Amino acid sequence: MYPGSALGEFLRSRRARLRPEDVGLSPGVRHRRVAGLRREELAPLAGVSVGYYTRLEQGQSPNVSDEVLDSIARVLRLDDDELDHLHRLARVVRARERVRPERLRPGIKAMVDSFTEAPAMAVGRRGDILAWNRLAHALLAPHWDFDGEEKPNFIRVDFLETDFARGLYVDWEQKARDDIAYLEGSLSRFPGDEELTALVEELLALSPEFRALWTEHPVANCATIERGYRHPEAGVMTLTTELLRTPDDEGQGVVVFQAEPGSPSSERLRRLAGLVAATAR
């Protein structure tokens, strides 16, 4: 069950994308029983024994050093985000404390409300929208009740309301990968969050698209993303999202959507703001 096997799953996914010749080895036999690099091929290149590396993938090496992790990352050709993720996952093996319930801080709600010309929302570590302004509601989920007590989880919307989500995002596949990367990051930071683990299990059970992408374990920091949106009234817009993490590291953040000044997208975002204002009146 994830996240107990998270470290092993991640390492296996990264071994699978490499070929022996990628790391200077002979491809050997034509038909290999496993995809990608074998454990016995990776371990010597990283300077560890096959037995030690095997135990690491099985979560049985809680005291693995940063130097060993860096060496393995070098062989696997991990980028900076993936390297950070690997280090967090390794620490999960020895730190599984329960986390506090997630509650929206009043200051975060006030920050979201302060944005009047840009869509903004507060998101939790599980992808729950904790607060949003009317522009974010109109852009992302106008079929939900803005004033309702229950607000959507944007990852559930993307994978379980796929007709809507595929219509909204110009590149739904990339949005879906970014969603999984968001979950991956949260799981590595909050391994004791049972509701987070339950969300992953729910999506694995209900969404074939989620199951297919989950095996790849995409990793990204999701801090700044440019994305295309289709709005039925305002039109197609390219917006950049900035995820501002809260300093207490509870996994919450504020997401602000912006268009390049003077661009057609900026004009369409103003059009959407006008529609929202007219509806509110």
Rank of each mutant, 00 (worst) to 15 (best):
P3N: 00
L7E: 04
L11E: 03
R14V: 02
E21C: 00
G24N: 00
R30L: 06
R30H: 09
H31P: 01
V34M: 14
G36L: 06
L37G: 05
R38D: 04
L42Q: 02
A43T: 10
P44R: 01
A46Q: 03
A46C: 07
A46V: 10
V48Y: 04
V50T: 12
G51D: 13
Y53V: 07
E57P: 04
E57Q: 03
Q60S: 03
S71Q: 11
A73L: 14
V75H: 02
L76P: 02
L78M: 07
D79R: 12
D84R: 15
H85N: 11
H87R: 15
H87K: 15
R88D: 14
L89Y: 05
R91K: 11
R91G: 07
R91H: 10
V93A: 03
V93C: 02
V93N: 02
R94M: 02
R94I: 03
R98I: 08
P101W: 06
R105A: 13
P106H: 10
G107P: 02
A110Y: 13
S114Y: 12
T116M: 09
A118E: 10
P119Q: 10
M121Y: 01
V123T: 07
D128Y: 05
L130P: 13
A131M: 13
N133M: 15
N133K: 15
L135V: 15
A136Q: 10
A136P: 12
L140W: 00
H143T: 05
H143A: 01
H143G: 00
F146D: 00
F146V: 08
F146A: 08
D147Y: 09
E149Q: 09
E150L: 14
E150I: 14
E150Y: 11
K151Y: 08
K151V: 12
I155N: 02
R156L: 03
T162L: 09
D163E: 15
F164D: 02
A165K: 01
G167M: 02
L168W: 00
E173T: 14
Q174C: 08
K175T: 15
R177N: 15
R177Q: 15
A181V: 15
G185N: 13
L187W: 04
L187G: 04
E194I: 15
L196E: 05
V200R: 04
E202P: 07
L206A: 15
S207D: 14
P208A: 13
E209V: 11
R211T: 10
R211P: 06
A212Y: 06
A212R: 11
L213T: 10
P218I: 12
P218Y: 03
V219N: 03
V219F: 02
N221P: 08
C222T: 14
C222I: 15
I225E: 10
R230W: 13
H231W: 11
M237E: 01
M237K: 04
L239H: 07
T241M: 06
L243F: 04
R245L: 07
T246Q: 01
P247G: 05
D249Q: 13
E250V: 12
G251K: 08
G251D: 08
Q252F: 10
F257K: 09
P261T: 11
S266W: 04
L275H: 06
L275W: 05
V276E: 07
A280W: 07
R281Q: 09
